[in-house]
Design a protein around this nucleic acid. Structure first.
Length: 213
DNA sequence: CTCCCGATAT
DNA sequence: ATATCAGGAG
């Protein structure tokens, strides 16, 4: 029988509560300000945070702000971000993004989703992640982990990330959007992995239809 | 839909 | 050998 919206909301609240207790601190990307988090998040595409964190300290020492990246040599930048993969793409994204920041935003990261998404190399996932974690502006982050876990746990029937974002947003108050996203991402990396999910070790297995609702 | 990149898990 | 990894652009 089909789960009601109210029942699903309650289940989400329980999942949120259990994960909050289990994973008190989930921020994995190292940053000191919103600009650094933006750059780090662009670098994190299809790559682990660990590899990103290995690169960013030296990167921000060499390029402290948007102006520095905007005037950087593309070849140097490519070399600096090389270990994170997709290095040509990412170097170009960061450089052109910083050029836009300098040209149209006084070198500062705009604090709205609509403006951030206009930046080259920045989509909704990146914008929501950055605004939520650096500025406390609520947003559901739908990355590959959230997409997978939400589907497995029966929190959405959609495949499209934008629709999943809407589905999850409607299931909880907006002040839980960012924390819940972080928790689910952590769970996705830790237990609910893409290839071989460790359901026997999962703290919210009891709330997952895959195990038994 | 493909492409970008390379390491690692399976 | 192949799928996947904190995706987004063309």
């Amino acid at each position: 029988m089909k789960e009601t919206v109210a029942a699903r909301k309650k289940r989400v609240a329980e999942i949120d509560q259990v994960l909050s207790g289990r994973y008190p601190e989930t921020t994995a990307l190292h940053f000191q300000n919103i600009f650094q988090l933006l750059v780090a998040t662009i670098l994190s595409a299809q790559c682990t945070d660990e590899r990103v964190n290995r690169v960013t300290p030296g990167l921000f020492e060499r390029y402290p702000d948007a102006a520095a990246f905007a005037s950087a040599s593309l070849v140097d930048l490519e070399e600096a971000v090389h270990p994170t993969g997709f290095f040509r793409q990412k170097a170009k994204s960061i450089k052109t993004c910083c050029e836009v920041l300098v040209r149209h935003h006084s070198g500062e990261v705009p604090l709205s989703l609509e403006e951030m998404v206009k930046l080259p190399g920045v989509g909704r996932k990146t914008a929501n992640m950055v605004l939520g974690n650096a500025e406390g502006i609520p947003g559901v982050v739908v990355d590959t982990h959230v997409k997978r876990v939400a589907a497995r746990m029966g929190l959405t029937e959609n495949i499209d990330p934008d629709r999943i974002e809407g589905d999850l947003a409607r299931l909880m108050p907006d002040d839980r959007w960012t924390p819940f996203s972080n928790l689910v991402i952590y769970l996705g990396r830790d237990k609910c992995t893409a290839r071989k999910a460790k359901c026997n070790e999962c703290p919210v297995a009891g709330m997952c239809p895959k195990i038994g609702l």
